[in-house]
């Protein structure tokens, strides 16, 4: 959703978005629509065995072939979009809202709060992300709420660092001094004075972080530690159909392509955002 908003803001304000960016935007929009309406689009129920053959090829009726149990791959991919896009979107929203609010607050308040917060979040940042995910799953088991919270916890430090570095620059502006002298509250300072000035780069950063989260979620699911059966996201679909790899079954290739199209198009969209949005607070 957020990515769509970025695009619309762009065109409303009269910026030019180039062709590559538009293609990226279209693909992102496509997957967002699929994720929203997956339940109405699937030709077969996800658990239904429709093919007597496993790892069946693509043919009319089973457009993307069948998986290792003979289930319809198209339906499973469409429903998988829901988990991959939905979980990542929820996680990236939590991560960025928390990180950005903390980052702006640290930049405005400064002093002890800032240095303690920065130290702790830096230490969190020095645990490799996959390892962090593995440990949490080992400790509390894997479920969708746990996954969302873990993924957002992993990416809070990055969002914090990014927004803090932007907010520190804004904080030195004169209108901030004026607002401070007026006696405005912290909430007003970060919400009404800082946020509007850094919102462009923050949204672009949110998009990049969304890609990281999709990659990490798919990685965990691929290891069998992410989304658990009977549900399956794209990473889990690759894992369960890995047996079809030696004969190039579509069941293992298509979910890989799905992940790649989503992440590459988000990257393309962000890279081709108008400079005005991306680097608004850059000097």
């Amino acid at each position: 959703m957020t990515k769509r908003a970025t695009g619309l803001i762009g065109s409303r304000l009269g910026y030019r978005i180039n062709l590559v960016g538009l293609i990226g935007f279209a693909v992102v929009l496509f997957w967002a629509v699929i994720a929203l309406f997956a339940a109405d689009l699937i030709p077969y129920s996800v658990g239904e065995i429709v093919d007597t053959d496993y790892f069946g090829p693509m043919h009319p009726g089973l457009w993307l072939g069948s998986d290792y149990l003979g289930r319809d791959m198209l339906s499973r991919i469409l429903m998988g979009a829901r988990y991959t896009v939905g979980i990542s979107l929820a996680a990236v929203t939590i991560a960025c809202v928390t990180g950005v609010v903390l980052g702006m607050a640290a930049a405005v308040v400064r002093g002890v709060v800032d240095s303690v917060l920065s130290r702790i979040l830096d230490a969190m940042n020095s645990i490799p992300s996959k390892l962090f995910g593995l440990m949490v799953v080992a400790a509390v088991g894997s479920s969708i709420p746990v996954l969302i919270l873990t993924l957002s916890a992993i990416y809070i430090p990055g969002a914090y660092r990014f927004s803090r570095s932007l907010a520190v620059n804004i904080n030195t502006m004169e209108f901030m001094t004026v607002a401070r002298i007026r006696g405005e509250s912290l909430a007003y300072l970060i919400g009404a004075e800082i946020l509007p000035n850094i919102i462009g780069p923050v949204l672009a950063d949110l998009g990049l972080r969304f890609v990281f989260i999709v990659l990490l979620l798919s990685g965990l699911s691929f290891l069998g530690l992410g989304v658990q059966p009977p549900y399956a996201d794209w990473g889990a679909l690759v894992r369960e159909n890995l047996g079809g790899l030696p004969f190039g079954a579509p069941a293992v290739i298509v979910p890989s392509i799905a992940i790649a199209t989503l992440t590459i198009s988000v990257n393309l969209l962000i890279d081709n955002l108008p400079r005005k949005i991306r680097d608004r607070s850059a000097p």
Partner: peptide, 17 residues
């Protein structure tokens, strides 16, 4: 950019293919 944007296992499965 392509290699960075996809998960490691997609790189691996493509290499195997």
């Amino acid at each position: 950019i392509g290699v960075i944007s996809v998960p490691e296992f997609v790189v691996a499965t493509s290499a195997v293919l």
